[in-house]
Simulated assay, not measured.
Amino acid sequence: MADSESKAAELMAQAERQVKSASGFIGRIFGGSAKLEEAADLYARAANSFKMAKKWSAAGNAFEQAASIAERLQTKHECAQKFVDAASCYKKSSFQDAIRCFNRAIEIFTDMGRFTIAAKHHVTIAEIYETDVVDVEQCIAHYEQAADFFKGENSNSAANKNLLKVAYYKAQLEDYEKAIEIYEQVAASSIEVPLLKYSAKDHFFRAALLQMCVDPLAGQRAVDKYVDMFPAFQDTRECKLLKKINESFEEQNVDAFTEAVKEYDAISRLDQWYTAILLKIKKSMGGEDESLR
């Protein structure tokens, strides 16, 4: 590793000499572009040597230097790719630097009309905000942008995947209207695709639960609407649970609500998202117990 780091430092020094040479009067007249291209290659080689030495910040910086030269040479794709390489290194040392470089790459790919690859990098940034730098608002913003780009490129499956992430977090922020809209939209599109039809029940289930958080009567109407849209929903365990919840609302029977949820959970384990939403519904019925079981 020490040898790799020493080699990287030497390559960086060589690259810097080439950049200075290309910037001089003689360099500009005789082969300035060629010297810059050689410098970019040296920076990239230095970055790879830093990677071997696990010097991630230094590797990211070296790739950024290569990207800057590619920008001067107006080789857009090469510039964007080097920013992606830099970001990938920074993910191991500085999440903010990684986000900055991914954003620079996105700007370039978007300018080039490469929206699918730009969308994929938006997803990567969203995932960083989701798990590493916890910022739900930024996470949502990047998943939304990714979905928009994918949709524009007719990648509807990828767009829906990201929209579901948006809905998931919108619900956590209690922006139920937006979350419901997305779940209904994705469910409706899933019904039209044989391979995705079965997943519609999950989206309708989430949408109906969120409707109940807003208004129990709206929840009941939503269940009826979803059954009309997707008759097979009628026989699912999810729909049966929703109907039991509606009945417990009408009777103001918290125990019946708890028992219905307990029966469902015994077969299909409820995750944290479902648990949080169901607890909100239970509290709206006057339930004081913090448990669903």
Score class of each variant (00 low, 15 high):
A40R: 05
I128G: 01
N61K: 01
D235A: 14
A179N: 08
A40H: 01
A158D: 03
Q81R: 11
K243W: 09
K35D: 07
G286N: 06
M212P: 02
L164N: 07
C239A: 15
P194A: 13
K82C: 07
E192N: 13
I69P: 02
I267N: 12
A141Q: 14
E192R: 13
G27D: 07
Y176D: 02
G152P: 03
L241E: 01
E288V: 09
K170A: 15
Y176T: 02
S49G: 06
A15V: 04
K151T: 09
N246G: 13
G287E: 02
V166K: 00
L164K: 05
K120C: 01
C101Y: 04
D289E: 14
V133I: 10
Q74K: 15
S268P: 06
A86R: 05
S157M: 10
F102E: 11
T258F: 12
S189P: 04
V193Q: 15
F150Q: 06
K76Q: 11
F149V: 06
A58K: 15
C239G: 11
W273L: 00
Y264S: 12
S157R: 14
H203Y: 00
Q252P: 01
S248V: 00
A207T: 02
L270N: 02
F102A: 06
A276K: 13
Y169S: 08
A46C: 07
N160C: 15
L36Y: 05
A222C: 05
A232C: 13
I108C: 10
R45N: 12
A58F: 04
C89V: 09
S248I: 02
K240T: 05
A266Q: 12
L242D: 07
A105L: 01
F83T: 05
C239I: 09
E127G: 03
A13Q: 14
V19I: 15
E78R: 10
A126F: 00
G60T: 04
Y90S: 03
A22E: 11
M112L: 08
K280T: 10
A87M: 03
G113D: 10
I277A: 09
S199P: 06
S284R: 15
M229F: 11
D132T: 12
Y183P: 05
F109E: 15
K91E: 06
A80S: 11
L73D: 05
K201Q: 10
K120H: 05
L292F: 02
V84C: 14
K225F: 06
E192T: 14
A266C: 09
S155D: 12
E251W: 01
A119E: 07
S49K: 04
I108P: 04
Y129K: 11
K54I: 06
Q18W: 06
Q211S: 14
M112P: 10
A171F: 00
